[in-house]
Design a protein around this nucleic acid. Structure first.
Lengths: 135, 135
DNA sequence: ATCTTTAATGATAACGATTATTGTTTAATA
DNA sequence: TATTAAACAATAATCGTTATCATTAAAGAT
C-alpha cells in the first residue's frame, strides 16, 4: 500500500485512495485483469466506486507507464503491471491470457521499420494452451 | 470479377453477387479497409446492401482464409486480402495502416511457445510513419 | 490549521461498433 | 422448374467505453 503511494508520487500522479487501491490490486494479482475484474476487486474496499472512475484511473496509470493495456481480446481491454517488452498468448479454449517472453526479434528490436518510428508494439498469439492440450 | 467467383467456389463458399462484390472490392484496393469503408464502396454497386450483411460476408471470407482481420485499432475491425504472415504499423498522426514484413523472429517462426500451440499471431506496431516524420 | 484551486470522483446518459432477430429472397441441387 | 437451405435486408438489442456534470477531495498557499 505504502509502496503504491510512493510509486504514484514518484511519477507525479495525484494520489487518491481509489487510485492507490486500483494500482495495489493490479500489483497484487500479477495477472491480466479486465476492467470489470478490476472494478469488482476494488469494490471490496470501495463499494461506491464508479466504473467510470476505474476506467479513468486505468487510463491515468497507463499514461504514466505504470501498467500496460492489452487488446488481445479486441472487444475487452485488459491490464497488467508488467511494463517491460513482452508479448501475450490467448487460449481459445480456456480464455486465459499468459505472458510470452521474446527471445529475439529483428523487427521488434528496432526503433524503426521502413522509415516508420516505432513507439509501441504488441504481439498477440492465439491458440491452445499447454494445459488445454493435455486434456 | 470472374477471378473472385472462381476463388470463392474453390473454397466452397456459396457465391452471391454481394459476396463477390465485397471480395472484389478488397482485392482491388489492396489496402486495409474498415467495415464502414467496405460498406460504402460496395454500396456503389449495391445501394441496398445491409451493413449486417457486410459484417457476415467479411466473417465468412475470414473463416475461409480469403481475407485477414486486423485489430490494430481495437475498436474498429479492418480487413485486407493479404493472408501471408506479416505485421502492421499504425501511424498515430495520419491514422494510416501499413504492412510490416517480418525478416526473422524466433518466437513467430515457432509453432508453439512454452508448450502452447500457436494457431495465429498478430504483430501491431504504433508510432509515427515516414511521411509524417518529414513534416 | 484553514482556505483556495484544480483535478478526481460518482452517477448516469450517450455513443459506436458489433451481434441477434426475423421475415423475405436467392442460390444450388434434384 | 421445384425444393430447400442459406443468405439477405431491415432493424432492434447488446455491451464496452466515453462524455457530461454536479459534487467531493487532494495539494499547495496563506
Amino acid at each position: 500500500m505504502e509502496d503504491c503511494i510512493k510509486i504514484l508520487k514518484q511519477k507525479g500522479v495525484k494520489v487518491t485512495s481509489q487510485r492507490t487501491e486500483v494500482f495495489r490490486v493490479l500489483r497484487s494479482v500479477q495477472e491480466h485483469l479486465s476492467v470489470e475484474e478490476v472494478f469488482d476487486k476494488v469494490r471490496k474496499k470501495f463499494p461506491v466506486i464508479s466504473l467510470a472512475t476505474v476506467y479513468s484511473i486505468l487510463e491515468a496509470l497507463k499514461n504514466n507507464s505504470l501498467i500496460e493495456e492489452l487488446r488481445i481480446i479486441p472487444e475487452k481491454a485488459c491490464f497488467n503491471v508488467r511494463t517491460d517488452l513482452h508479448h501475450h498468448f490467448y487460449c481459445k479454449k480456456c480464455k486465459k491470457i499468459s505472458d510470452v517472453d521474446i527471445p529475439f526479434c529483428a523487427t521488434l528490436d528496432k526503433k524503426e521499420v521502413a522509415g516508420n518510428l516505432i513507439e509501441e508494439c504488441k504481439g498477440y498469439f492465439y491458440g491452445i494452451c499447454k494445459a488445454c492440450r493435455k486434456k
